[in-house]
Write a protein that binds this DNA or RNA. Structure first.
Length: 498
DNA sequence: GTGCGATTAAG
DNA sequence: TTAATCGCA
């Protein structure tokens, strides 16, 4: 077979293009970078430390430090691909800086990855408009999920609102094409020369150093790769270990998925064959990746969830408010609720920016259904403190816990913080790590110190109300109040099962 | 001959 | 996902 009209190899559409990196801080298996290199003779790479985002963050923010370190590594990785190349880094308002850079460089196109968070969509619309005004194209590509937007739909062409059928359709649609990686290295000669300039330091950006270095959270694509390798050593146990915060069960890849220092295709491509081979751990973990796609898709198709309940009737609920509510919230934030598992979990997020997934559900349930506080308060707290904060997943998780979401837990299902503790931290290993003041309590008493005999408290050097708080609410009473509070959403025939 | 939805191919 | 091609009205 001869001259099969060789498609695109020499058909560079543009002389100059820009790849605008955002939440995709890697130089391999990268959709936008691939397409840019393929269609432009010269490709400039840029990252903007966006003042529009950074100015609203606390001055000590582990994520900024993680991003800064990852950007340094990305710059080096680009130079490793092509010695004359590199990353242009700016500290500016991205919506203005990108069009300005396109003008300076005489670029005809800008390439970037999809970001379907409402603020990112708004920013990209502004950029698209400004670029169009100059005759410059903005081309964006799916990169951070396997399936997005309207790729997985029901038979009726509607987005899924229930996870299990979504997952079935997701798995059915999956094939090796969607897991294939985008080869970048082969086109590295199209990377444009870049004057070597240092990436702004954390101090240049106006931020303080955090304790990130002391946490076991290696940044950059190399850090991501390291965690991937470590996790796949234990993935076959994932289903059995993932619910126990005292055990190293999870992948800890959330933050790398958030900033694109790992490739979702690579992860899914590694887990999928193990799933097919029947490794339960891999199947359960793959499901977690599907949950991530699910919530990204929910946010994209139902953007109102960023403001209010997925199920509108849940916006009728009257939450606790005023000064007492603020005090309860403050106690929750500070890990001063008197429920050890809740408090240990809050200590974990406050000290590390990470919280075990099981505990995210426990503290969320506690905030909403024991304290009677608006789930958005908790959502906002997580948004500020979680290293791996992702609007879609965080919102999905909080709406799940508050029962207001799609496929959420029923409103009358209320976690008992003590039995969760007994079940998932039976030896109090996790509690003792984060609440050393309770370390000497017995396994029987550590989940609910207020039930311990005075003798035991004394022997363990615990003084309730002094070294450790009394419970700020009684769970049983709170449970009753919550059922009343949620009565406004009750469907005429729905009967509570408990 | 045209046009648009469906299908298929491509990292 | 995007891009190209197909196929039937």
């Amino acid at each position: 077979m001869l001259a099969r009209a060789t498609p695109k190899t020499s058909d560079t559409e543009f002389t100059t293009g820009i790849v605008w990196f955002r939440r995709d801080l890697r130089s391999f298996d990268h959709a936008a970078l691939y397409h840019a290199l393929k269609t432009c003779r010269q490709v400039h790479c840029v990252f903007v430390f966006d003042k529009e985002i950074l100015d609203h963050l606390p001055r000590a923010d582990r994520r900024v430090e993680f991003i800064q370190a990852s950007v340094v590594e990305l710059d080096a990785a680009l130079r490793a691909l092509q010695p004359s190349a590199g990353l242009v880094t700016l500290h500016a308002v991205a919506a203005q800086a990108i069009p300005a850079l396109a003008k300076t460089l005489h670029a005809q196109a800008v390439f970037a990855s999809h970001d379907d968070e409402p603020q990112a969509l708004a920013r990209d619309a502004v950029v698209r408009g400004a670029l169009a005004h100059m005759g410059v194209a903005l081309r964006t590509y799916k990169d951070h999920v396997i399936f997005e937007r309207k790729e997985v739909l029901t038979q009726q062409g509607k987005p899924y609102g229930v996870f299990t059928p979504y997952k079935n359709a997701w798995l059915k649609k999956l094939d090796d094409f969607y897991l294939k990686s985008y080869p970048v290295a082969a086109y590295a000669t199209h990377l444009a020369p870049c004057e070597r300039q240092p990436v702004p330091s954390l101090q240049d950006l106006g931020f303080e150093t955090t304790n990130l270095a002391s946490l076991k959270l290696p940044a950059g694509a190399s850090g991501g790769q390291q965690l991937v390798e470590e996790f796949f050593e234990r993935i076959e146990h994932y289903h059995a270990t993932r619910d126990f915060p005292g055990i190293k069960g999870p992948s800890y890849l959330g933050v790398h998925l958030r900033f694109g220092t790992v490739s979702i295709r690579q992860l899914a491509a590694m887990a999928y064959p193990l799933h097919l081979q029947g490794f339960q751990g891999a199947s359960v973990w793959l499901s977690e990746l599907v949950w991530r796609d699910f919530y990204v898709q929910i946010l994209s198709n139902f953007p109102h969830v960023a403001q209010g309940a997925f199920k509108p009737e849940y916006d009728q609920i009257a939450w606790q408010h005023g000064k007492p509510a603020k005090a309860l919230f403050e106690a929750w934030c500070q890990g001063q609720t008197g429920y050890p598992l809740v408090d240990a979990a809050m200590a974990q997020i406050n000290q590390t920016g990470y919280m075990h997934n099981r505990l995210r559900m426990v503290v969320a349930s506690f905030l909403v259904k024991d304290l009677g506080l608006d789930w958005r308060w908790g959502e906002a707290y997580f948004a500020e403190h979680l290293n791996d904060f992702d609007l879609a997943s965080n919102n999905g998780g909080w709406q799940w816990a508050s029962s207001s979401g799609c496929d959420a837990q029923p409103y009358f299902r209320i976690f008992n913080p003590t039995s969760q503790s007994e079940k998932f931290d039976p030896e109090g290993k996790f509690i003792r790590r984060y609440l050393p003041q309770l370390a000497k309590l017995s396994n029987a008493a550590i989940h609910a110190p207020w039930t311990a005999k005075p003798m035991e408290l004394q022997a363990a050097e615990v003084v309730l109300g002094k070294t450790y708080p009394q419970p700020i609410v009684a769970h049983d009473a709170a449970r009753t109040r919550t059922l009343l509070r949620y009565a406004v959403v009750k469907k005429p025939h729905a009967l509570p099962d408990a």
